[in-house]
């Protein structure tokens, strides 16, 4: 506890880095996954290659990706953009399937009613399908957020500063305190991401609160 009190400012700085490295890819990843998931729904032949193909990206060990990206992107090994790209890859890997399944779960009769009322395919997507898919997409976002918070910490092994640095630092000195503080901080961050996503989803789906029927 005294260690934490002595290092509050350091931990906060690392936490800010952590939020940036885990959070920004979450948003970019969603923006990329939306059109990809839509395509997988629009053209049924694409569903399996897309969900399986992008899903495969998730099986690339994070350590490998952090180390290899500089070689591919031409960046320096300590460049934070390596981590941002890697985390975006993982987010897309998780969300393409979620988005495709979420859009697929929108009831057919609702879609047909919308078409019958004269919605174009484009407007129908934004006015009807996307709003109805929000709860499922939000669930996928929560998983991706928790996953990102955990994976970002691995970047400490290659020296990118964020909360994971507390793990490597503590381990190197066989000193529990930083590791425990790091774990707690990651946990709190994951919880915070979760609450934010829940809150946004709630704001976007007022009908879910009315009456509780789903």
């Amino acid at each position: 506890m005294t260690w934490f009190l002595d290092h509050v400012q350091d931990v906060l700085d690392l936490a800010v880095q952590h939020v940036y490295l885990a959070g920004l890819p979450l948003v970019i990843g969603l923006l990329l996954a939306l059109p990809l998931g839509w395509l997988a729904r629009r053209y049924p032949g694409l569903y399996t290659p897309f969900t399986a193909g992008f899903g495969l990206l998730y099986t690339i060990p994070s350590l490998a990706l952090f180390i290899l990206l500089p070689g591919i992107l031409g960046t320096r090994i300590l460049d934070r953009s390596n981590v941002l790209v890697a985390m975006t890859v993982y987010t897309v890997a998780l969300l393409v399937r979620t988005v495709a399944d979420a859009l697929g779960a929108v009831p057919d009769d609702v879609k047909q009613a919308a078409t019958a009322m004269g919605f174009t395919r484009f407007r129908r997507f934004f006015a009807v399908e996307l709003p109805l898919a929000v709860p499922v997409i939000a669930a996928g976002m929560r998983v991706a957020a928790v996953s990102n918070v955990s994976i970002v910490s691995v970047a400490a092994v290659i020296g990118i500063p964020q909360l994971g640095l507390l793990f490597t630092d503590g381990f190197a000195r066989s000193f529990y305190d930083p590791i425990v503080v790091g774990l707690a901080a990651c946990f709190v961050l994951a919880l915070a991401f979760d609450l934010v996503i829940l809150a946004v989803a709630r704001l976007l789906t007022p009908w879910q609160r009315a009456g509780g029927a789903s």
């Binding site: 955990s150 910490s153 790091g182 774990l183």
Partner: peptide, 8 residues
């Protein structure tokens, strides 16, 4: 799920 594997 929220426990970072590396820290653990």
């Amino acid at each position: 799920r929220a426990v970072p594997s590396l820290g653990l």
